[in-house]
Each structure stands twice: as structure tokens, then as C-alpha cells.
Amino acid sequence: MSGKRVVTLTINGDQTEVLCEPRQTLLEVLRNNLDFTGTKEGCSNGNCGACTVLMDGRPVVSCLVLAVEAEGAELRTIEGVACGSHLDEVQSAFLEGAALQCGICTPGFIVQTEALLAENPNPSEDDIRFYLAGNLCRCTGYDKIVRAVQAAAEKRQVARSV
């Protein structure tokens, strides 16, 4: 297919230019053209949330965004959640709380949780379950994921109040 476009993206703080076809999704370009394979593909139609990234601060399923639509966007992927070699509160809460089994949905859950906590630093259990309902996990039954999000929110609150 002709008509390739150059798209300029800022990914986890770094500006990058990528040559892509208009029919390529943001997910495909992240994974195949740019090797950001931490963002996972589970369904390609926006049902499972495994490919969630933050686009200008808003969580989107990257399989439903064309790469050309992301021109000029500020993206945050799972690779940009940790600060250098330090895991952030959400990541460490998932680890300490055993909130993952196979781990394929984990990047999407962590990114979606980052958006939740940015919007609502002190969510109730119901808030958490509602906000994460677009992210499917087939292994955990969600119990430990919800508890990890609660633990991360608390940890972040404590860190802020110090």
C-alpha cells in the first residue's frame, strides 16, 4: 500500500518519528515498528484492554487508534511507568500482592490503574472495579488486582502526605 506517512509521537518522554501505513493501528506501530512489545494484543477490537496506553493522559485501547491519529500525541506505555530502575507504587503493589498469574493483562491493568489514580487518588472498591471493568483478566478472579490497586493508592497517599 502506498502513501506511507511520517508520524511524530512522544513516547514516555522521548520524541520519535515513525514511518507507517495509514491502516496501521497505534498498537501495531508500537509493537512492530517501534518494538514497544510491553503493550499486549488480546483481541484487536477494544474488548480486552490488554493494549491500554495513555494518550495525552487519557487511557485508550491502542488497537482502536490508528497510528496516524496519534500525530503529535504524548504517549505513556508500560515501559514508561517505572522511574529508571525504580518500580512505581502500582507495579510494586502488583508484585507484592501477587496480583498477576500469567501476566499478559498486567501491563494494561497497570496503565489503566495509573489513569484511575491520577483521576481519583482515593478510590473505593466500587470505583476501582468500575474503572477497571474494561480490562479483562482470566487468571486471578480480580480479587488480588483490586487489593493491589487499593494498596498502591494508600501507599501513594502516604507518600504525598509525608
Binding site: R31, N32, D35, F36, T37, G38, T39, K40, E41, T77, I78, E79, V81, A82, L87, Q91, S92, F94, L95, E96, A98, L100, G103, I104, T106, P107, I110
Partner: peptide, 23 residues
Amino acid sequence: TRPVRHDGADKVTGRAKYGADIK
């Protein structure tokens, strides 16, 4: 006891390689 799993860091940072990540 409940140690942190050995593959945990890779799985919460997106570094873990699954089948479709092979290139």
C-alpha cells in the same frame, strides 16, 4: 512464605517476552 515471584519484575514492566513478541 510469600516471596515476590522471580519473573515478577519483567511482568510488571512489560519486559517479559510472550509468543507474539518474538521478532
